Computed example of a mutant assay.
Amino acid sequence: MLPLMIDSADFSQKLGLISRNVEHTEAFLARGTVDFHLPGFMLPVGYRLIKSRYGNEYRLVTIDDGKPYTAYAVRLTFHKEITFPHGAATQVMVWRTPRAVHQRVISGLPQSFFQWVLSEYDIVVSDSEQTGDGQWFWLRMIDWAFSMNYRISVADGTVGEEWHLTPVSSYAELEERWIAFAWRYDRDVHPHPRLVISKA
C-alpha cells in the first residue's frame, strides 16, 4: 500500500511536550536498555544512543534540566509479506525533537540510521502512514538510494492478496508517475501502496 498522509502521530504529540517526553523517556529507560553504536555517527558528550532490551526501539537520550529527555526515537518492525520471500524492515514511530538546542546533534542522525537499517537488513519498506515530514524524508532517501545504484520499487497491494513490485528507474519517473500514487489521503487505499528500497 502507499503511505497514507496523516497529521502528527500520537507519539509525536507525547514526545513533543517536554513534561510528557521526560515521563516517556523515564519509562523507556526503566524497562531496560543497552547502548547502541551506530557506525559513522559521532556521539556527542552528554548524549546516549540506546536500544530497548525487549524490542526494536532506539532512542537518542540526553539530560535536559536534570531529567532524561528523548531527542530522537525510532522503532523497527519486520515482515515478509511485501517482499516475500525476502524479509524487510520498516521504520515506524520516527520522531525527532523540534528543540533548537539539539538540532546540531540530530541533524544527520535520521539519514545515518536509515542507511544502517538498509545495510543490516538489505530491504527497507515505507510505513503505511506518513506525515508530510515522513514523505519528505522518504523522497530524500530515495534520491540518495538512486545515487548508490540501489533498487527502488513501488509495492502495490490494491489488487488481490499478493503485492506487486514495480521497479522505478529514476527520480524523474518517481515524480512523474508514482508520487501521487504513493502518497494520498484515501483511508480505503492507503495500506496498499508502499515504497521499497533494496540493496540488490
Rank of each mutant, 00 (worst) to 15 (best):
L2S: 04
L2C: 05
D7P: 13
A9L: 13
Q13I: 06
Q13T: 14
L15D: 01
L17F: 14
E23T: 12
E23N: 07
H24C: 15
E26C: 09
A27H: 15
A27N: 14
A27E: 14
A30Y: 08
A30P: 08
G32L: 11
G32F: 11
F41G: 07
G46D: 07
G55R: 09
G55I: 14
L60M: 13
V61G: 02
Y69Q: 01
A71K: 00
Y72K: 04
A73W: 02
R75A: 12
L76Y: 06
F78S: 10
F84M: 06
P85F: 05
G87V: 02
Q91D: 12
V92M: 06
V92P: 02
R96E: 08
T97R: 01
H102L: 03
H102S: 02
Q103Y: 03
V105K: 01
S107G: 04
Q111G: 07
V117N: 03
S119R: 09
D122H: 06
V124T: 11
S128E: 15
E129G: 06
Q130V: 08
D133I: 05
G134M: 12
Q135K: 14
W136N: 10
W138E: 02
L139D: 02
M141Q: 11
I142K: 00
W144T: 03
W144H: 06
W144P: 02
M148L: 10
N149A: 11
Y150T: 03
R151W: 02
D156I: 04
T158C: 08
G160D: 07
E161H: 08
E162W: 05
W163E: 01
V168W: 01
E176F: 07
W178D: 03
I179V: 12
W183M: 03
R187G: 05
P193N: 12
R194V: 04
L195Q: 02
S198I: 00
K199N: 04
